[in-house]
């Protein structure tokens, strides 16, 4: 099969599966049916059933990846739209995100160390709450393994979407501000995507948290690691 045909199939297939996932979410409307979860699972099922290697899928998938950049740029629009509201709640967002960054690094370090993992693995796990390129840069600077760091980032993203409903219920978080900060701080852009599905204001809060969290973690991770290891 030609490259072009494979790419078109992968892109159209992913688009179709995404729309099935949207329909599933509309029908059941459960936190476990978040479109990113259902669509990812369906694509994986298709790849395994038809024995399609990930590399082959990515012939088309890389084009969708290419649009991830402008997609993140587009997040500026809700920020702009709600800038007056956001200005008033800037302090709680910043404070919550800062606390989130400290909790993420310290609990990651402590738990992994306590479980007896070697230092390179512990370091790779440290920046898991922030967006992939930043997490990889932080991991490199503190002495972890970059591809491993990228996997942990993904687990934090998918896991956060999977658990958010239960976590917010457990911690009694029901305000758009708390939800947005929680999703952005813990699950970066994948969490922000889920917040945007609720409404643009929660999504905008999540966007700020995600960006702030990337800054906070890259600044404090190296010193917290030195302090705790």
């Amino acid at each position: 099969m030609s490259e072009f045909l494979i790419a078109s199939l992968a892109i159209c297939g992913t688009f179709a599966i995404y729309h099935i996932a949207l329909w599933v979410h509309r029908t059941w409307n459960h936190s476990l049916t978040a479109p990113v979860l259902v669509a990812t699972t369906l694509v994986i099922v298709v790849l395994i059933t038809f024995r399609i290697p990930y590399e082959t899928y990515m012939v088309g998938g890389k084009w969708i990846n290419e649009l991830l950049g402008p997609a993140v740029v587009a997040l500026a629009y809700p920020l702009y739209r709600y800038k007056d509201t956001l200005k008033k709640v800037a302090a709680p967002i910043v404070a919550g995100t800062l606390l989130g960054g400290i909790i993420g690094i310290s609990t990651g370090l402590l738990l992994a160390q306590w479980a007896g993992f070697e230092a390179t693995i512990v370091y790779s796990l440290t920046p898991k709450s922030v967006t992939t390129p930043v997490a990889m840069a932080v991991t490199e600077s503190i002495g972890g393994v970059m591809p491993l760091a990228a996997i942990f980032v993904m687990i934090a993203g998918i896991g956060g979407v999977l658990m958010h409903h239960y976590v917010f219920r457990l911690f009694q978080v029901d305000h758009y501000l708390g939800r947005g900060v929680g999703m952005g701080s813990a699950s970066h852009a994948i969490g922000t995507a889920t917040s945007m599905e609720v409404n643009q204001l929660e999504g905008a809060v999540s966007t700020i948290s995600m960006v702030m969290s990337a800054l906070v973690v890259s600044i404090i991770a190296p010193s917290l690691v030195q302090l705790m290891m």
Partner: peptide, 14 residues
């Protein structure tokens, strides 16, 4: 750890 970040940061800002 993700759970604690999400709950802690969300609860505190709220």
């Amino acid at each position: 750890s993700t759970m604690l970040v999400m709950g802690g940061s969300g609860f505190f800002s709220q």
